[in-house]
């Protein structure tokens, strides 16, 4: 009886504190560096829709030790949308809910953590792939469609959740960095009228 009560209390604490097995993958604002995107005069940008096109949207991988799903704390589409918003905002653009000068829409084609066994450690490979469309909201035309992909590979212990998240964080960051340094995308943003 006493043990059961302790278990209930522990479960309640875990629920209240948000302790969960899901990965809190994200793109940290502190790491954003104003760059090429800031060379374009500030635009009012509507971000979205960001659509998760993956065939299995319920998970981002399988645990190497038991095959159970690896999940993210937030939907993958939200993670990607937030990353785009952070990058645009830190580069001086104003993100607006609707309208604006330009719309940045994205399809998430891949957001997955793979594992490959090895002696004593496991190799993790995180992949993020996006298709990004830039639309001139005033002119009503799509001015650019580009695909970006980021991959991160590292060895870690089989149950190293910190490594799982770092791998996915880095794969996402590499994807966004490719986007932020793409001269074609910067030119496209620059051609959109304000």
């Amino acid at each position: 009886m006493r043990a059961a009560a302790v278990a209930v209390v522990l479960a309640a604490i875990a629920a209240l504190t948000g302790c969960s097995s899901a990965l809190d993958v994200g793109y940290p604002e502190a790491a954003v560096n104003p760059g090429l995107l800031a060379s374009v005069a500030p635009r009012r940008v509507a971000v979205g829709p960001v659509t998760d096109r993956r065939s299995d949207q319920t998970r981002i991988g399988a645990r190497p030790e038991n095959g159970k799903p690896i999940e993210t704390a937030r939907p993958v589409a939200d993670i990607v949308r937030d990353a785009l918003v952070v990058e645009l905002t830190r580069n001086g653009h104003v993100v607006v809910p609707e309208g604006g000068d330009v719309r940045v829409a994205a399809d998430v084609d891949d957001f997955w953590l793979d594992t490959a066994g090895s002696d004593g450690s496991t190799q993790y490979v995180g992949r993020v792939a996006l298709a990004v469309a830039i639309r001139d909201e005033q002119g009503g035309s799509t001015v650019l469609v580009r695909r970006y992909a980021g991959i991160r590979r590292r060895y870690a212990d089989p149950d190293a959740k910190e490594a799982w998240r770092e791998v996915m964080d880095t794969a996402l960051a590499r994807t966004v960095h490719d986007l932020a340094t793409d001269p074609e995308l910067v030119r496209a943003l620059g051609t959109v009228s304000r």
Binding site: A14, D24, A31, V32, E166, T170
Partner: peptide
């Protein structure tokens, strides 16, 4: 309690961009 709640706020992800 503090120890248990520590898992709620995961440490900030490592910086992936070079300053």
């Amino acid at each position: 309690m503090v120890g248990l709640s520590a898992c709620a706020s995961a440490p900030p992800p490592p910086s992936v961009a070079t300053p």
